[in-house]
Design a protein around this nucleic acid. Structure first.
Lengths: 224, 224, 224, 224
DNA sequence: CATGAATGAGCCTTCATTCAT
DNA sequence: CATGAATGAAGGCTCATTCAT
């Protein structure tokens, strides 16, 4: 994955889906993933999901992974930044796989957009920890210059797909004229809002949420 | 701002909005309690906005306020939690005042809802630091059980108004049937998304954003 | 009261009962005691009794006294040391008065010694806070060179009486030959032990304790 | 030392008594965990003995141990509480060993009781720092609810043995009928009193003290 | 007689990282 | 491949005291 390389016009948020799904592999991981790395990453996901990004430290991670010392983490990852990046990549991969299976070879742009929305909410239902961790990482990446992962990257990954679908749909007359950046961002934020809500209200009916959001944005984008 | 109600007027932050910001750095003067608190709160807002919630410490705050030691902060506030709470209250007050002036005595529910949306985006244009800090505080309040401010409180403040307007509008047939919780949450998240976006793209046309969001949600909620 | 001046032979622990009871007055207090000082001292006693010497700070004291700021304490007392000294004096005065009334004009040395023992335990029953605070102050005075009150002074006050009675009794053949220092110290510690025990076992039968201790030391000191 | 039982053998302090005290200051060497812990504990004992419990901080401890930073302490111990607990355990172990050697296989209850008394005073003569630190820890454990070590535990350790010997002796008719709690507590306090006294009067003849106390309690408990 | 404001030093703890095997 | 040991920096907080009215 190359963050700054893009195939066509848009400023700096253009990453093909193929490139994006390679994100998790960037540090040398292959299909025969290092078991230790995976163990640590899973512990990181659970820690971030349950403690929040801020309270997640090497100490908390090794506790969950049942490792002997924090040295284990810094041995397998270059640093905190690297660990977060790898964790982010892993989550994105899993979500991509999940969503990809759901969408199949769907070609209709409208069904593709709304399907993406609902699939991401469905992913939240089956992978609450990954989803929560993803939002946490995204949120904190946005904060500081020396953040552990680039805000640009996370944003591109998480908003880009919606943006491309919208722009394409508008060009084909499927969707009305609108600012795809704002609309995509709102979609992203809407899903993340559900993630946040789920924390305070674990009984939340996610299926209904998915339908509600799909309906909401269907009305918001459809050509008149 | 009152935490449990929808009306205005925060218990201990009722200072007039006259300018106090010129009380600057390291004068050595002993200021009156209220002025000092305000000075510290303003430094806190700017610190959170620029550094993010996590990197904002007493040390960073006193640097910005030009105070002698971090002791100054813990002298005027019971603790970090108290400071954050007071900061939150101050920001919400300022936003309430701003939005209140914009909306005037507007009675029409639709114009009230869309006006609230656009006014909050307008507030972001004139008060970017307050807006950013507000999102940061809200985000981190959602994280941990022992957060400095209650997630419930922040959520109620920031989402409640939209939710009430939506429920009311639906009852009166102005808006279509929809889940007011999800819709209100999405509005909240949409605005916060713009705040986040502004950080990476300071040239963002906020006026256009406001219109875009108003249009988006107008389509999403209007009775058919 | 003059700590170092003594009327007769023993090294540095000789203070007449009269001198001792003036201890509390040494800082200018008269019968028409300053109300504020008394208020602060009482708050100090209760704080030390309930929180322990270590956790007792100006902040805790003003809380209990309902005063506005710690400045109130440092205004009425030269410093922490002065406050502790005055508190110690007040407690010793109260105990002296209590014990004095109990012993009346008793002349018999054995009854005087055992009566002192039992009276001090009785004081503990009616004045648990004063007693606890007294032990706390005594204990912590013994610790460091720059302690708030001189260990010598506290020791002289609290052990001296027993020592003099013992020495006198031995001279008159009422008590057996023994080291009056060790014996007096043990008496002091025995009573203090009851104070400590009372904390963990508030249901303790203090009357029985008093009898038990009196019996114990009666056997320990009586001439054979 | 086992907290809940009367026998010996502390769970994690079973290091042999071979001399390790020459592992001195700032060698820069990385020592094995156990040795480092012992070094820190010894520094803690000396600090508490000389400065008192209250003034003993991580900073004072690392000074004495010649370590580079306070981080060294929190690296080897879970926290202050853990350090105090380990220190307490170490001291009790040393005293148990010392007293055990002195008493040998003594079976006679009276000689066992008085021997215990004298052996503890003898321990004070050879291990003044341990003894002083022990009293300091015990005193401060008794104070607050969130003390570093439980008052119950310390009391059980330090008074329990006397109490059991007394109860047993009374059952066998060796000692008179008396309240074993009060009597044991008084013995404990008597020995602690000598510890306190030694601070102010280092020339104290501890051998004489031991004899005096043994005589005192022999008279106090013997069957008539 | 009383008060508010300010202060520097110290506390224990947690952090991610580096140095050695 | 794995580990133990060590580290400096920073965190929020409490302390008794002093400076001004």
């Amino acid at each position: 994955m190359q963050v700054n390389a893009s195939s066509d016009g848009h400023p700096d948020l253009e990453l093909s889906d193929t490139e994006l799904s390679e994100f998790g592999a960037g540090t040398g991981l292959t299909l025969t993933e290092d078991v230790r790395r995976r163990q640590i990453i899973d512990a990181t996901i659970s820690a971030i999901a349950e403690l929040g990004y801020v309270k997640t430290s090497f100490a908390r991670i090794v506790e969950r992974a049942g490792l002997s010392s924090t040295r284990m983490v810094s041995y397998h990852f270059a640093g905190k930044s690297d660990l977060v990046q790898a964790t982010l990549g892993t989550i994105v991969d899993r979500q991509d796989t999940f969503v990809g299976e759901r969408l199949g070879g769907e070609q209709d742009l409208r069904r593709l957009l709304l399907g993406q929305l609902r699939a991401e909410v469905a992913f939240l239902a089956t992978h609450p920890q990954e989803s929560t961790a993803l939002v946490e990482i995204g949120t904190h990446a946005a904060t500081a210059d020396d953040a552990d992962v680039s805000a640009q990257v996370v944003h591109a990954i998480r908003v880009g797909r919606f943006e491309r679908l919208l722009a394409q749909g508008t060009r084909h007359g499927v969707f009305r004229e609108c600012d795809p950046q704002i609309m995509a961002l709102t979609m992203r934020q809407a899903i993340d809002g559900v993630v946040l809500r789920l924390r305070q209200q674990p009984s939340l009916d996610l299926d209904a949420c998915g339908r509600e959001l799909a309906d909401l944005f269907d009305r918001a984008v459809r050509a008149e």
